[in-house]
Write a protein that binds this DNA or RNA. Structure first.
Lengths: 115, 115
DNA sequence: ATAAAGCGCAACCACAAGGTTGCTTGTTGT
DNA sequence: ACAACAAGCAACCTTGTGGTTGCGCTTTAT
């Protein structure tokens, strides 16, 4: 078992870009906002406030599910969706990496100006 | 001047979803990674490693520029792109909000179980 | 038993996204 | 002056995305 280490920076990007993409939609952001409160909701419940049809909301939920932000559990005739924080923690790591790079660049610039 | 306060939660989503969307592409994530190091790069420089054409890279840069993650400065015959951290700080706020909601939900659940 | 609620599936549509090629315009090096 | 380089512009193509409608299937309520 060689090649155990397939965790390059590029590979991490490949896994995280879809998570960003999943959050790159107003409707899905509002779904996340509702579900991150902890209580699972059925599709009909999630459709309620929206102007969109149930099927549209379903599609959005499947997108979120495909990247693991959300998970569905069938309960009788309804399927309840619940939040999973892991993928979001993942992209927060990535954003922190970016911020860190930037901060280091700034301090390099600063020390260069001072000398 | 009434209506000074147009900063509802929905309005914030409307401004941030495009930032997430801009990051929701592997190529653009790699561009961000290069530029957040502090040094501005020309389009040709940014195209160098990639398999894509210069025009494709240009389009990606315009997407990043349209949400303010990146800014272009014309310098002679080349246009150099430089990173701007502000929009990314914005979405980090949003993600922190989500995480906070989730944590509160967890602790509510915990105290409910304990009693 | 049967009506209604809740979903899933599939077809379809309009349009945005990602990418290419070809050509033009401006800038730099010699 | 002129070749080479950097970039912009426009047309075009293919695929993906967001949305709809219609229909059928299971589960619940009456």
């Amino acid at each position: 078992m060689s090649h155990k280490r397939r965790n390059s920076i590029a590979a991490r990007r490949q896994r995280r870009a879809p998570v960003f993409a999943a959050l790159g939609d107003e409707t899905r952001l509002s779904l996340v906002a509702k579900l991150c409160g902890g209580q699972p909701h059925s599709i009909s419940q999630l459709t309620e406030g929206s102007k969109l049809t149930r099927q549209a909301i379903t599609k959005h939920l499947r997108v979120l599910e495909s990247v693991g932000i959300v998970r569905s559990v069938r309960a009788g005739r309804e399927s309840r969706f619940e939040f999973d924080p892991q993928p979001i923690e993942g992209i927060k790591e990535y954003l922190d990496f970016v911020s860190e790079q930037w901060d280091q660049a700034l301090s390099r610039l600063k020390s260069f100006v001072e000398n």
